[in-house]
Simulated scan of single mutants.
Amino acid sequence: MLELNFATSMNDAMSDTMIKENPFSSQPTTSAFTEESTYQAVCKSAVASAIFAVLGLSAFLAQMFMLLPILGIVFALLALKAIRAYPDELVGKGAAKFGLLLSAVCLIGSGAMHSFIYATEVPEGYRRISFAELKPSSRGTDAQGFPKRAAELDGEKVFIKGYVRPPSGKQYGLKSFIMVGDFGDCCFGGDPAITDVVAIKIQSDDTVNYGYGLRRIGGTFRLNPSTAASDEEEIPRVFYEIEADHVR
Rank of each mutant, 00 (worst) to 15 (best):
L71M: 15
R84W: 12
I160S: 00
I70H: 06
Y172D: 03
S37Y: 00
G140W: 04
A59M: 14
G72L: 05
F183N: 11
F60A: 04
A229P: 09
A48Q: 08
F60D: 07
G181L: 07
R127E: 15
A46T: 04
F239T: 00
T207L: 11
E232I: 01
K175L: 13
P69K: 02
S25G: 02
A50E: 04
A95L: 12
G72W: 08
I108V: 13
L71Q: 12
R216C: 15
M113Y: 10
S110T: 00
V208C: 07
C43S: 03
N224E: 13
M66P: 00
E133Y: 09
I200V: 05
S115A: 09
A48Y: 13
P28H: 00
A85V: 13
L90R: 06
F60Q: 05
A150T: 07
R237Q: 10
H114Q: 07
M64W: 05
A151R: 06
R237K: 05
K135I: 01
T34P: 02
A76Y: 15
G213I: 13
A32Q: 10
I242T: 01
V238M: 09
G145V: 08
L102T: 13
Y163Q: 11
P147L: 14
K148I: 13
H114C: 05
T141H: 03
P136T: 02
I194G: 10
I70W: 14
E234L: 04
S49T: 03
S9H: 10
V238S: 09
P167H: 01
V180I: 13
A76C: 11
G184S: 04
M113D: 08
A48F: 10
E243D: 08
V164W: 14
I235V: 05
A79C: 00
I178K: 05
V54F: 07
I217V: 10
A82Q: 13
V164L: 06
L2M: 15
A244P: 07
A132Q: 06
K135P: 00
E35H: 02
F6K: 07
F131P: 01
E152S: 12
D231W: 02
P192K: 04
S110A: 05
L134V: 08
I202M: 04
A7L: 12
G109D: 00
L77S: 12
L174S: 15
F24Q: 00
S58M: 08
I51W: 07
D16A: 06
I70S: 03
P87Q: 04
F188N: 13
D88Y: 09
M179N: 07
L67N: 05
L68M: 01
K81G: 14
A151V: 11
L68G: 01
L67T: 05
I70F: 11
K97Y: 03
N209R: 07
L153V: 04
N22E: 06
R127W: 14
L134D: 06
N22L: 01
L4A: 15
R128I: 11
S115W: 10
Y240L: 11
Y210L: 15
L101K: 09
T17A: 02
V247M: 12
F177H: 01
G189F: 14
S9K: 10
C106I: 01
L57G: 10
F177S: 00
P192D: 01
G145A: 11
A95G: 08
Q63E: 02
S226C: 06
F221W: 09
D12K: 12
L55Q: 02
S115F: 08
M18C: 11
Q63H: 03
V42Q: 06
L214Y: 07
S49V: 01
T34F: 00
G213F: 14
